[in-house]
């Protein structure tokens, strides 16, 4: 059954151990609502590895297979291959569900391999923009200006000076059949994209915006608002890469980066000049995305 386009069935039950307001949980919740019961989920070391509960308990209504930190895509490949040879793949979704560190850093080789081989898996990166499980260290998806425990503020100002890696472009460069960004603040868009991933022949990649009140230092109840701001500022644009074409799903880039940055403790130290620099970069990236959409649809 669906309500406002969102399936009503739940696969995450009570008893999870996530922090209040955790975005990862919300990402998994919408994901499983769409994928349903016939889903096997692979989880590496990350916050989400601790969330469903300790052995033998689980608060998820689907089978989970935990895997080594950097092996999510290889593990999902193995599950998919086994299901195929057993003639069971048709009805089962194989999902890799990893953090930004497990995806963009240590797991990028395995991910590249799996996409290149064309396994029928849905790889979801829930991007909370740092290694949260180990206490908020910098990953290659930590945004410019953020402080983390390995980019501590310090006397000389030690915040991160590099911009986020563009994972969507990286997977697009693999000629992946389907990739999309999703944001739980836009549930209908989210659900529609997981539906597409489910029906994709070959690998699909989902890059999910995933708030983390603990690591980003803001009040948990602000999560959905932050999500909307992330998209409305163009920091986290909603778009798809489907059969070689970029499609932007939400074009109202109406807000300033500052509005988003000022709500979070991890950006509190930044000067207005610095944030202006970020704004310029984001504006450029947005322009690039518009061009990518235009060129790829010609």
């Amino acid at each position: 059954m669906k309500r406002a386009g969102i399936p009503t069935e739940e696969f995450i039950y009570s008893g999870h151990t996530a922090c209040p307001g955790c975005g990862a949980l919300l990402v998994a919740r919408y994901l499983l609502k769409v994928l349903g019961k016939n889903t096997i989920m692979n989880i590496p070391a990350c916050c989400f590895a601790a969330i469903p509960g300790t052995f033998p308990d689980t608060c998820l209504g689907i089978p989970l297979l935990y895997n080594a930190f950097e092996t999510t895509a290889a593990t999902a490949s193995g599950v998919e291959a086994a299901l195929k040879i057993k003639g069971k793949k048709e009805k089962i979704n194989v999902v890799g569900f990893a953090g930004d560190g497990g995806t963009a850093d240590i797991g990028i080789q395995a991910l590249s391999g799996a996409i290149e081989r064309g396994h029928e898996i849905i790889y979801v990166c829930y991007d909370n923009e740092a290694y949260m499980n180990t206490g908020m260290q910098t990953s290659s998806l930590t945004p410019k200006g953020a402080t983390t425990t390995t980019n501590p503020l310090g006397k000389k100002g030690g915040w991160r000076t590099r911009n986020k890696k563009n994972m969507m472009d990286i997977v697009a460069a693999h000629d992946i059949p389907y990739a999309a960004t999703v944001n739980p603040s836009y549930p209908m868009d989210f659900v529609k994209k997981i539906e597409k991933a489910k029906n994709t022949k070959g690998t699909s990649y989902i890059h999910a915006y995933s708030v983390c009140p603990t690591g980003w230092r803001y009040q948990p109840e602000l999560g959905l608002e932050l999500g909307r701001l992330a998209t409305e500022t163009g920091l986290f644009p909603l778009y798809e890469f489907e059969n070689g074409r970029y499609i932007i799903n939400y074009k109202k880039k109406t807000k300033e980066v500052l509005e988003y940055y000022k709500l979070q403790g991890r950006f509190r130290h930044l000067s207005e000049d610095f944030i202006k620099e970020v704004q310029e970069y984001i504006d450029k990236e947005w322009q690039k995305l518009l061009v990518k959409e235009e060129c790829s649809n010609r």
């Binding site: 092996t71 290889a74 593990t75 490949s77 193995g78 599950v79 086994a82 057993k86 395995a110």
Partner: peptide
């Protein structure tokens, strides 16, 4: 990694 997962499947 793939062998482990396939075996567990």
């Amino acid at each position: 990694a793939a062998c482990i997962a396939a075996s567990q499947t």
